[in-house]
Design a binder for these strands. Structure first.
Length: 474
RNA sequence: GGCGCCGUACCCAAGUGGCUAAGGGGAGGGUCUGCAAAACCCUUAUUCGUGGGUUCGAUUCCCACCGGCGCCUCCA
């Protein structure tokens, strides 16, 4: 079987994946600052990482997946003022919302860690950077000195000189170089603050990810991930401070994985510009499985243009997969179960694995899913004519394959929405279908069609087949 | 100004130095059906932004140009 290949931002190449420790994967994703409701762009990261962890597990790895909440920073402080609650309450409120959204989309949760619970690790890290001469203290602030780290710029592919040429930021006079960044910020009056060797203050923006990932995963961990917009300066700074902290004896992280932005009307979805579709609102309009499917239709590094048309397409495509799956299940109910025969499904499983092994190419993997759907439908369609009439064993094998691809790997449920599973509704539908059958038998087609039309208007689809009438919620 | 990405059919979107350029949505035709729906079959890119170059051969590699986007400031 082909081995897993991952695109590594650090080398700008696809590389075969080799774990730090056999059979184990340690991975870290930069989480968010919980200070506003999450939008579709955030959820793309959630889904990408969920797929990555699931695929590693299928390959037999034990995965330790850590993600942070930056639960104290300037934006949280501002938000707390606006809402008239504490910074802690702000962080808890929006973290909770984020977790609910992630779970609704079928993501298994990472091991969440926060800044405020790990202040000791951060202070210890900053202290060593000061002691080793990588950082300097000014009026209670601590800055990392970029010039002390010769490899600065290796991730984003830029040099300090290039950046200075186009610098647009107002330079803090107290910094030795314009590119130096804060590891620790002295508290202003009234701000939440923690004791440190440099006085009361709080961590700078980048240090938390370094301190938390190294504390929970150790040096040279396998995967460090985030949105592409974090490559510079966030991840560049993380590498500098982390590898300086490790005294340049070990790399910080081994594979850097970045997913592409979600755009809306040709512009990146971003809180700062207000160009945003909150996932909360979208969940009112689309089944979470459809949203998840939509996010998987494009390779994770490609920018994804959000649109309701695309969501509707995703809905139709997912429905096609689900209807085939249900037909197969109905066939097995009628013909009796059988030990699954995987021989028909095997070539498709191979193809699917190849796609996933090629940098988690879900778009390509989905093409294989549809080939299984066609195989299944073809066999179920033509019982007498078929060269290869469907056997329960083969159908069971194809259904197993479909289930594994969609639910186990891609995390998209094949079952219909819960209403269809309600027992009362099921009995009711049986009655309605029986009545309508009677109307059809008496050739009262106008009435039979009215029943079907009325149900359609309610979102219930009736389909008459040679085996009887089926129904589903559209 | 610097660094980088992208441009594949009506729409979305994989992909490869050379076999028929995946798949989905949509549209048209057919089979089946009381009619629908679903499903299946056929049709929808002699061609992969434009112009050069490398090569026996390029959509795929290189250069230029045109168009779109991201980062360089908080950002997932």
């Amino acid at each position: 079987m082909a081995e897993l290949v991952i695109y590594n931002t650090l080398t700008r190449r696809e590389e075969p994946f080799t774990p730090r420790e056999p059979h184990k994967v340690a991975m870290y994703a930069c989480g968010l600052t919980p200070q506003a409701p999450a939008h579709v762009g955030h959820m793309r990261g959630v889904i990408v990482m969920d797929i990555v962890r699931r695929w590693f597990e299928q390959l037999g790895y034990e995965v330790h997946f850590v993600q942070n909440f930056t639960d104290i920073d300037d934006k949280i402080i501002r938000r707390a003022h606006e809402e008239g609650i504490s910074t802690r309450e702000v962080a808890e409120k929006y973290s909770k919302m984020y977790i609910e959204d992630a779970e609704a989309l079928g993501a298994r949760l990472p091991h969440f860690v926060t800044v405020t619970e790990n202040m000791d690790a951060i202070i210890e890290m900053v202290q060593r950077l000061v002691d080793d001469g990588y950082a300097y203290v000014v009026d209670g602030d601590v800055y990392f000195e970029v010039n002390k780290f010769p490899e600065y710029g290796k991730l984003s592919g830029r040099s300090v000189e290039e950046m200075q040429a186009g610098a647009r930021i107002e330079v803090d006079e107290r910094k030795r170089n314009p590119e130096d960044f804060a590891l620790w910020k002295a508290a202003k009056p009234g701000e939440p603050a923690w004791d440190s060797p440099w006085g009361k203050g709080r961590p700078g923006w980048h240090i938390e990810c370094s301190a938390l990932s190294l504390r929970y995963l150790g040096a040279a961990f396998d995967i460090h991930a985030g949105g592409m917009d974090l490559i510079f300066p966030h991840h560049e700074n993380e590498i500098a401070q982390s590898e300086a902290y490790l005294r340049c004896e070990q790399p910080f992280a081994r594979y850097w994985l970045h997913w592409g932005p979600v755009r809306l009307r040709q512009e990146k979805m971003s809180k700062s510009t207000g160009v945003v579709v909150p996932i909360r609102e979208l969940r009112q309009q689309y089944e979470p499985a459809v949203i998840r499917y939509f996010l998987l239709t494009v390779h994770y590094r490609t920018p994804l243009e959000f649109s309701y048309e695309r969501l509707d397409e995703a809905k139709a495509a997912l429905e096609r997969i689900r209807v085939a799956y249900q037909r197969g299940q109905a066939f097995l109910r009628e013909r009796g179960g059988a030990n699954a025969d995987a021989s028909v499904a095997e070539p498709y499983l191979q193809q699917f694995r190849t796609a996933m092994n090629h940098d988690f190419n879900t778009a390509q993997a989905l093409a294989t899913v549809f080939e299984v759907v066609r195989e299944l439908n073809t066999r179920l369609n033509t019982p007498e004519v078929a060269v290869q009439p469907a056997t329960p064993a083969e159908v069971a094998g194809l259904l197993d394959a479909l289930h594994w691809m969609m639910e186990t790997v891609l995390g998209v449920p094949l079952s219909m929405p819960v209403a269809a599973q309600d027992e009362t509704i099921q009995r009711l539908m049986q009655c309605v279908i029986a009545w309508r059958q009677e109307l059809r038998a008496r050739k009262l087609y106008d009435l039979a069609d009215r029943v079907r039309d009325d149900l359609k208007a309610m979102g219930i689809v009736l389909e008459d087949t040679p085996q009887g009438t089926t129904w589903r919620i559209a």
